[in-house]
Design a protein around this nucleic acid. Structure first.
Lengths: 336, 336
DNA sequence: CTGTTAGCGCTTTCAA
DNA sequence: TTGAAAGCGCTAACAG
């Protein structure tokens, strides 16, 4: 079952069938109709491998993520697939599992399948792997890389405004002693969020107590430990901002263990707005980072770059938004 | 950059390069070594599209799921990818979004990419779409389909034993009035679970009160509503088993809203063991359905079927296990 | 607007 | 054990 059979049935050449499939405008409507009927009756599906070989374009876009079980990613993956399919493109997903070796494997998988572009939504990628793509003129899109370079597109989250919204919300509730549980400092995006917090505190004219800045690991256990240390302080904070939702959820556990109430004793704000955050008790106030937007931007960046044959990437800004739920409340009376 | 260049550099024919790549045993170790070095220095990655075209095997396996943001799927996807990559195969993931049209699109995507097999982990698939695969001799693996047929492999979860473990756990805690919040009756696997519950109650010699069986939708809202109705009963149950974890979580919300305690007033057990269940307060006792096992079985079924050219599928059993956490406790004193 | 035909890069007989 | 060469199914000049 191939294009030849279709051509025979429709009484045209294979070229005409190909043109019809590809929506060329130089085919008479009648001919096209005949071809389409032939395709229909034969239940013919063009072989994408042959198409890719013949045209030099795979219509495949790679999506490299750290770990699909990390709640940040599922919606990102879904949105990426949605928009790709809308454009008639296919998606190749690969998990690095936070493992550099595995990342290398992911890159090789992408290269073998001759992807037309790759969205790299993890933070860890070695320079030489980027070159591998760059040398082959394969468009790349990153999320929050430090430096835009080599024609790579970059999705840039405006962390500053997100953190600002969080700090603003807390100050409007009367909080002054605001703590921050950061992510791992090995992560660029975690460093950016921490810097954003420090600047936001200054901008809001609040005293910045370095004791109130903890380092976590973007997982619940890190949040738990960081919060435990904060609670051991003689003057403990009345509000905490966490670098991501999992950290915040871990912190909530630590607070409950001490018999304290949220938000009665301590208010807490997360970052990301993963699905889980709506289900915690109390539901978590958080700064939403739209994964749908990120995915759409990343795909468009790749698709446009590939289509236009452009060599240079661009920057795409994303605005986070504060989602107020139940984990934040007024500063407790008698506290500072 | 192609196999010819490699052949030239290694001073062999393209056939020998091909054989080396494919690990043929009829290549002298020395020749093979020379070829490998050439591949290395040229940073050559064989073009999978050409390979697929030449060999008639795509080394691609499809994985159709309902919705990656449904917490049941991420771990399944990850495990499937893991095992596929271990076998040098690639994965094509497609979400149906519970939409029949979209399912049709998924099938066409699979067909175009010429997958070597498809794992269909959703419940909704039309008969004629199955034929589409069957006619092309493409192995299929299903999760909990009603009837095994047409050489399709079937991953069969032993729901009976899972539900039995749940009922047993509750009776050992003294519970007698046990309710069940089922999934949507349009779903085969939901029907099976409900039947299993009814049978288990009988086997344990417990009175089966039909009022205590509610129908949900496998989402939190359905659990919430079902539980609300149960709480309105004059003789309300002391324990509830939900058809899946999301239902259980919704039910927990309804219980809390009435000012009741878990497990003080009511014990609750879920099904699936999604990640979220460890984070609820209290942590949810549930029947774990290992997604890793399901994924591995499905892949193996497909891979083996394809490799052996077999026409008929097989059945693969999966045993669920009870995970006891904090949402179950002794029957409250004075209650029945 | 349509047909002819030479590739695309690899696999796989068939010979040697 | 190795090489030559004929496909695999489609695309894209080029010619008409």
């Amino acid at each position: 079952m191939n294009i030849k059979e279709v051509a025979k049935l429709a009484k045209v050449s294979t070229a005409t069938v190909s043109r019809t499939i590809n929506g060329s405008d130089k085919v008479t409507p009648e001919t096209a109709e005949r071809v389409r009927r032939a395709i229909e009756t034969l239940k013919f599906y063009p072989n994408t491998n042959a198409r890719a070989l013949g045209s030099g374009r795979s219509s495949l876009y790679g999506l490299i993520i750290s770990d699909i079980t990390n709640p940040f990613f599922p919606e990102l993956v879904k949105s990426f697939e949605d928009i790709a399919v809308q454009h008639g493109q296919e998606v190749l997903i690969a998990n690095t599992n936070y493992d550099p070796h595995r990342m290398e494997l992911c890159v090789s998988r992408m290269l073998q399948r001759k992807v037309d572009g790759v969205a790299i939504m993890t933070s860890e990628i070695a320079e030489h792997l980027i070159d591998e793509f760059h040398n082959r003129r394969i468009p790349l899109a990153f999320l929050d890389t430090a430096v835009p370079q080599k024609g790579i597109s970059n999705i840039l989250v405006d962390y500053a405004s997100g953190v600002d919204a969080a700090v603003g919300h807390l100050t409007s509730l009367g909080h002054k002693a605001i703590a921050f549980i950061a992510g791992p400092m090995s992560l660029e995006s975690a460093r950016i969020r921490k810097r954003a917090f420090i600047q936001s505190m200054k901008r809001n004219g609040l005293h910045l107590d370095l004791q109130l800045i903890e380092e976590g690991n973007h997982r619940t256990d890190g949040g738990h430990e960081g919060m435990a240390r904060l609670l051991d302080l003689k003057s403990r904070p009345t509000a905490v901002i966490a670098s991501n939702d999992l950290t915040a959820i871990g912190a909530m556990g630590a607070i409950f263990e001490r018999g304290l109430e949220i938000p009665g004793d301590i208010s807490i704000i997360g970052f990301d707005d993963i699905e889980l955050s709506a289900f915690t008790r109390p539901a978590l106030t958080t700064v939403r980072l739209s994964r749908q937007e990120i995915a759409k931007m990343a795909f468009r960046a790749l698709y446009n770059t590939y289509q236009s044959g452009a060599v240079k990437g661009a920057e795409y800004p994303i605005q986070p938004t504060l989602i107020v739920r139940k984990s934040t409340g007024p500063r407790p009376a008698g506290k500072h």
